[in-house]
Design a protein around this nucleic acid. Structure first.
Lengths: 104, 104
DNA sequence: TATATCGTAACCTTCCTGGTTACATGTGTC
DNA sequence: GACACATGTAACCAGGAAGGTTACGATATA
């Protein structure tokens, strides 16, 4: 993490809602239809209860004329922040020179 | 995809093996021990049968003094390429002006 | 030979994604 | 009011992935 932030990144579903759906008055049903997925799937993402998968990133990029990487980056940054905060096990990993020398 | 490539990106597990493990003569067992995970988990990644999760990216970054983003980017580029090639459904998505006008 | 080691298979649990169906609520029409 | 329809979310289910533990096959070692 290049910049360790105290607060989690905004959930990509929130950004989808506030930056794309609301300004354009697009409903969950509309977007589901446009993307060719179920209303339930869009509802979960928008309500921050589901992730933006690679397939979904591709679909969103087509609908909103963005790059799939935009959505993917939002999701991955969110994932990485939570992985780093939800558990601390990973911090037990020692850099290799130390760890490998000890075992060699 | 900024550059549409014909061939898939290299699997991150392959890069882990050829750029990190082999040059340093680190075995699967060693790395599993260093990272604090099972041999099976490392074996799957190295043999391109598993993904590098966010947690794993954090662990690898500690062991090899890289950034977690390095590993995460390898994985997500691999994921995105495969999502775009494994199914073509996403290409049916129409840009919003067209799709939304039709339904409005 | 017996034993130890290593990488992968087998078995199992947990969790996530996604669709379909069901449901609760709201809206429009008569 | 009753009724039909629309919308977003819950409930149910199936499929698949990640991960650990145990088992196994192959190899190395004493």
């Amino acid at each position: 993490m290049l910049r360790a932030r105290k607060r989690p990144p905004t959930h990509p579903g929130h950004i989808l809602k506030t930056h794309y759906l609301d300004p354009l008055s697009i409903t969950i049903k509309d977007l589901a239809s446009i993307l060719g997925v179920s209303r339930k799937t869009i509802s979960k993402i928008v309500n921050e209860r589901g992730s933006i998968t690679s397939d979904m990133a591709l679909r969103l990029s087509r609908a909103f004329k963005t790059t799939p990487e935009l959505w993917q980056n939002l999701q991955k940054n969110y994932d990485l922040w939570h992985a780093s905060h939800d558990s601390k096990d990973w911090q037990n990993v020692q850099p290799l020179e130390k760890a490998h020398q000890i075992s060699a």
